[in-house]
Nucleic acid binder design. Structure first.
Lengths: 226, 226, 226, 226
DNA sequence: CATGAATGAGCGTTCATTCAT
DNA sequence: TATGAATGAACGCTCATTCAT
C-alpha cells in the first residue's frame, strides 16, 4: 500500500507510523471542519508532532488530503473482496458485497462525506488517482452483478448504471445520514435498499432464491411501509 | 422568495438585482474553484461591482454561499411541481417527476456538485435551512410515490428510502458525470435508472401500464446490457 | 520614470507616493541589514503603512528590492547629464562627470553598496534590467571620453576599460568607505583619483590644460604622498 | 592557518579535513545562490556529510561564511608574495603583483563576488577580521608601489589610493565580468588596465623601462582604441 | 564521531472586511 | 449607494539548530 507520496525520511516503518498519525488526525479534522478550515498546525497538534515534521512526510497540505482520501478508497478495496469471498453463489456474493459496502461506508461515514466535499480541492492529477481507485472498486461490484446476469439470476440490465445505483445507495447512507439517522437503523436501511434495488433486477426464476436469502437476514425491516 | 438574508439597502428591486448579479457570479466561481479558493474580489469583478458593495447586500462571504445554494434547491422546488402537474395518473406523475428531477440536475450540474461540496462550509443554522428545503422538495416526490402506493401501482415499500433512492439517482448524474459522460447520454441514463428503480417497486398489476409508458418514452435504452 | 512594476492601485499619484514611502523605508533597512534579514513587516512599519498594503504596490519582496536598486541607478542617470552640461570643453566635461559621479556615489553610499550586495538576489530578468541601466549610465561617461580622444586630449586608450576604471573608482569610495573614511575626505579622494587616472591617459599636448583645471579645483590634495 | 573558529572535535587533522569539505561545498553554493538561499542541508549533502555534523566544526551558519571568505582572502595572501618574489626590480615586481592579483581574482571570480555580496552578512567582529586580512594583502601591493616610488620609477602619488585603484581594477574583472567577458579576454583586460594605470604614475625617467616590459607581455592589446 | 529525525520560531503572502470619500 | 484603498489576523511552509541514538 505504498502511496507514491514521496517522503524525505527513509525509514519505511517510521514513515508508516508517522503517516498514520498524520492521516488519522487529518481525517478527524477535515471531516469536522473541512479541508480549508483545518490548519497544518491543528493537524500536527492532534497528531502529537510538530508542524514542521509533517513536511518530512508530505510535500503539501494537499498531499495530506490525498493520503486521507486514499485511505478511504483503500478501505473499500480491502474489505469488499473479503466480504465476497465468503460466499460462492453469485446472488449470495452480490448481496454480501452490497451489505459489506454499506457497512464500510458506515464505518467511514465522515471520510466518505469528506471525499465528496474535498476531492475537487485536489490538483487534477491527484484527483484522477482517486477516481481511478473508485473505478477499480466499482469493478468488483460490477463483477458480481455480471456473474448474476450470466447465471440468469438478474435480467439484462445496464451493469454500469446498476453498479453506481448500488454505490450511491451506500454512499447515501453517509451523505444523508443527517436524515436517515432520524428514521431508521443501518440494518433497516440495508434491508429496504436491497428490497427495492434487487427486486427490480431479479429474473422471475430467481425470486424464490432471493426470498430465502431475504428471510435469513438478521434484522428484518421493522417498519416496511413508513 | 425573500431569502431572510438581511441587506442594508432598502430598495427591494435593487436588492433583487444586485443579489442576482452576485449569486450568478458566485455560482460560476464557486463551482469551478470551490468556496474557499474564490475571493470576494473575484466575485465582485465578475459581477461588475466593487468588492465593498457586496457587503451592502450580504453580511458574510458565507452568506453568498447560502444564497447560491438556496438558488439550487429553489430550482428543484420551482420546476418539480410544474412537471408533475402535466399529468394526472399517479404513475405518469411519478415518472414525470423523476425525469424532471434528472433534467433539473443536469441543467444545474455544477451547482448540484457544489451543494455536496460546500454545504458543510455553512454555519449550523444556515446548513439546516438548506436541509429543510431539500426535505420539502423530497416531500413532492414522496407524495407521488405515496399516490402510486395508494393506487396499487407500487407495492408497499419504504417511501422515504425509495424517495432518496430516486434523489440520489438524479444527483449521481451530476456527482459522477465524470464517469457517466463517458458511457451514456442523459436520456439513456434516465431510461436505465427508471428501468431498474421502478421495476423493483411496481406491483404485478401495474406492470402492463409501466410497459406502455416505457414504450412511449422518446429514446429507448440504446444499449440495455452494456 | 515609470518602473514597469505593476501595481493594483490605479491612482498614479498615490502609487507614486506609496512607492516612495516603501522604497525609502526599504533602502534604509536593506542597507543596514541586507535584503534577507529585512522583513516586509519592518518595511511596512518604517513606511508607516500596513504590511498588506505593500502588496498593492508591488508583487513581491524582490520587487521592492528592484525598486530600490532602480532608484540608485536612476540617480546616476539623472544627475550625471546635468553635471556634464555645465561645461563645453570635452576635458572640462570629463572632469565634471567624474567629480559628479563620485558625489552621487557619496550621496547614495549605502544604496551603492547595496547594489553590489543584492543584485544577485534578483531573478534573472530583473537583474538584467538593472545591468542595462548601468550600461546606459556608463555610455554617458564613455561619451565624454570619446570626445576627449577625438579632440586629441586623450591618447588612444580602450574606452570601455577606462570607463569602468572611472566607475569603479567612484564605487570604491562607497565600497571601501570603511577604509577611506579613515584616511581622507571625498574631495581628497577625487583629487588623487583624477591625478592618477587622467595623467595616465592625457596626451602630452593636453597636459598644460589639465594642470590649469587641476589648480582650479577647490581643495588641492592636502597630503599627496601619504 | 588556525582560523580561530572553535570546533568541538579535537583531532586537528580531522578538523582540517572536515572544514575543507564544508568550505568547498559552501563556496560553490554560496557563490551560485548566495548565503541566505543556501541551506545547511545543501552544504552537508554536497560535502558528503550529515547536517548535524557541520555543527561539530562550526558554531553557526555564519561561521561557515566566515570560513569561506577567509579562504578567499587567504588565497591572495598566499599567491601574491609568490608572484612578487619572482622578480627583483621594483617595477617588474609591481607589474608582476598586478598581473598576479588579476589572475587570482580570475581564478576565484565567484568567491570574489561573494565577498562583496556577503561580507555584510557577518556579525561586526567577524567582518572586521575579514577587513583586517584585506588590508594585510593590500600592504603587499602598497609595499611594491612604495619601492617604485623610492626607486624613482613612480612620481609621488597617494600610495593608498593607488593601491585601491589597483585592487579595484582587479576586482572589477570579477564584479563586472558579466560585461567584460563580452568584450575582451583577461589578458587584454590586464594589458589595458596596466596601460592606463601605470602610465599615470610613471616618472618620465621610467617610461622607457615600462615600454620594454610592456612589449615583453605575451598578448599585446588587440584593440587599443575600441 | 556521526546521523538525521524532530523542533518551532519566523517569514512572505493572502484576503475578508471596513470605512473615508 | 458605490468605490477601492487600507487593515491586520492568519496561514502554509522553511530551515537553523538540537539531541537521542
Amino acid at each position: 500500500m505504498t502511496y507514491e507520496v514521496t517522503s524525505i525520511v527513509e525509514d519505511a516503518a517510521l514513515v508508516e507510523k508517522r503517516r498514520k498519525q498524520i492521516v488519522d488526525a487529518a481525517t478527524t479534522l477535515f471531516s469536522s471542519q473541512g479541508f480549508f478550515r483545518t490548519t497544518i498546525k491543528e493537524i500536527a497538534k492532534l497528531a502529537g508532532i510538530s508542524s514542521g515534521l509533517i513536511y518530512q512526510y508530505v510535500t503539501d497540505k494537499e498531499d495530506v488530503l490525498l493520503l486521507v482520501l486514499l485511505e478511504v478508497v483503500d478501505a473499500y478495496a480491502r474489505e469488499l473482496p473479503a466480504a465476497i469471498e465468503s460466499a460462492t453463489d453469485p446472488l449470495d456474493r452480490c448481496v454480501a458485497a452490497i451489505v459489506a459496502y454499506c457497512r464500510v461506508v458506515d464505518a467511514h461515514r465522515a471520510a466518505t462525506v469528506l471525499a465528496y466535499r474535498s476531492t475537487k480541492s485536489l490538483s487534477e492529477d491527484r484527483r484522477v488517482r482517486i477516481q481511478r481507485r473508485e473505478l477499480e472498486t466499482n469493478q468488483i461490484i460490477a463483477g458480481v452483478i455480471t456473474e448474476c446476469v450470466r447465471k440468469g439470476y438478474f435480467r439484462r440490465v445496464n451493469v454500469n448504471v446498476l453498479t453506481y445505483q448500488i454505490v450511491m445507495t451506500a454512499h447515501a447512507w453517509a451523505l444523508k445520514s443527517w436524515y436517515f439517522k432520524t428514521i431508521l437503523t443501518l440494518d433497516d436501511y440495508i434491508e429496504h435498499s436491497l428490497d427495492i434495488l434487487l427486486k427490480g433486477v431479479l429474473a422471475p426464476s430467481a425470486e424464490k432464491k432471493w426470498q430465502s436469502i431475504s428471510k435469513d437476514m438478521a434484522s428484518p425491516p421493522s417498519n416496511p411501509s413508513r
